[in-house]
Design a binder for these strands. Sequence first.
DNA 1: TTGTAGGCGTTATCAA
DNA 2: TTGATAACGCCTACAA
Lengths: 343, 343
Amino acid sequence: MTRRVSIVDVAREARVSVATVSRILSNSDYPVSPETRARVLEAARRLDYVPDAFARALVRRRTGIIALTVHDIADPYFAEIARAVEDASQASGYRALICSTDRDPDKELQVVRSFRAFRPDGLIFAGGCVEDAAHVEKLRRGVGSLAVRGTRVVALSRHPTGVPMVRVDNVAVARAATEHVISLGHRRIAFICGQPNFTTSTDRLEGYRQALAAYGLPFDPDLIVIGWYTWEGGYRATRELLARGVDFSAVVASTDIMAIGALVALREAGIHVPDRVSLVGINDLPVASVVDPPLTTVSFRVRDLAAVAVRLILDALDGREIPQDTVLDFDLKVRRSTRPFPV
Amino acid sequence: MTRRVSIVDVAREARVSVATVSRILSNSDYPVSPETRARVLEAARRLDYVPDAFARALVRRRTGIIALTVHDIADPYFAEIARAVEDASQASGYRALICSTDRDPDKELQVVRSFRAFRPDGLIFAGGCVEDAAHVEKLRRGVGSLAVRGTRVVALSRHPTGVPMVRVDNVAVARAATEHVISLGHRRIAFICGQPNFTTSTDRLEGYRQALAAYGLPFDPDLIVIGWYTWEGGYRATRELLARGVDFSAVVASTDIMAIGALVALREAGIHVPDRVSLVGINDLPVASVVDPPLTTVSFRVRDLAAVAVRLILDALDGREIPQDTVLDFDLKVRRSTRPFPV
DNA sequence: TTGTAGGCGTTATCAA
DNA sequence: TTGATAACGCCTACAA
């Protein structure tokens, strides 16, 4: 293995000091004679020199890294987030370091802890947070020890740890989804919920409740079914719902992914969507419009969430004040999985 | 911002030298007295000390980073890959650094170059490679300058740069997809190709040709349509195919994602799948089984590709010889998007 | 405008 | 078994 080419080699090649090289290759507004600059640039090019990020991070107080925790990078929602974080980071010369937590509190803690070794300039929590007091406290501590060392932290959903948030109002989102089917005349509306105790889950369930209440409809626990935030989860939850034998003409799913799982289960059971059952999702992922029927869903700019979060982190790094709670808009996208009731 | 707690603080707290702390915390097998070890461990815990990855990487010759280039992390195929790389890396104490290239040769070059600053221990190319001599040469040089500094490089598809590969035989894969519909009696078979000049594209097109040739069927250019590796791409390609007015009873798509786009286009055109047209994809992504009809596709263990690649990198890092070309198995998954012809 | 030298946090090489 | 101390590659006062 050849010795790596360092700033010393470039300095020697250009017959200047390392300080001069450093000034030209990093701190660009420092006065340097044009000839020297040219000679150094040429030497760096000839040697194919790339400054070492590790050495640089050691002496600067910045690592150029933005850490991102997602529940599962293979989940289309988080893949979108990851892509947006990557793009926004790269545009400002930062790099994204991504880790999946699988919605496992312990793994989340461990991920946050392991991030500390990299002293990231920013940390973004993408998924919902477990609402367990003990866990939240541990997480708050983990976040604190990062923050105290300069990492700016932002969450993309309601986060009980008290970090700044960029998010949509999930209560309102689920309420909009539910009110849509209510306004179509549906009265017996099932709700497919993701893993309980997550902020996202409780908020969306609450939105569903609020919609019912607003229209004076009874809340029937038999219409609520708890599942997982996956296709399989939506599928199984719907099977369970069907097994209960309760009457319903509409299903609100906590996410598009779960809604698509529900679609499969309904199809298998010979229940036509939307002729016999209307179905609404949340998120408006690309996949929502390619299924049959195209999914009615609540839409918000998933990528904007991430982009704004990155911008806030950069702002905070620049010493600016950043808002504690940024709430983005959403709107209902009516496609063909919902229709009036009765037919 | 508080000063970060360093090894010096731990040493002072435990009243030993930094050397001793380092030896204990980097858990080398260096002999240390039990009492000292306990004291140091306790001090580290009390101070909540985490060694700085950057300082460590500077002096060790390892960074603990495995870099990954994907075409687009938001594409379900690459999201699967990313997840598997992440898992396999983490299991061995490494971290994955992911970048999307958007199938843009220049961006790919730039990504590879920018990776150099991080001196990753491993680099995985996930997507197909542009088969342009000039680009391949540039890429080979970029890879070379990483390799010369110790980065082990592996590609997850045929790669003209000469780096070790872990892959499926894409010619055989596409041939299997095509032979499936031929064996069902189809004769006029369209092929939806991804962006040309990529190894994956040319290989899969070649597989399609070989299947036709094997059955003595003519190759009709009118049945080939070039698109993009996206839903939109599959959709548009299919629209173009329909606009040509050529006769066909089956479509082989270069990927599941394109196949699903094709499905939407066919549905819109009132062409039933599989009653009037059979449709095959490639990859067997999770989404393939939730669309209607569930997609017949060629299946291979996408995650294994990535996991094996990580293992090879670790092996190489340990000084072991690694195979130049590892070819994984695949098999046809017949679902409900294909049926015999004529009906 | 350019150069010298100290230090960032860690590991590794010598001594002790 | 433990401790000084010289790297690792870079940036940045401070000097010249």
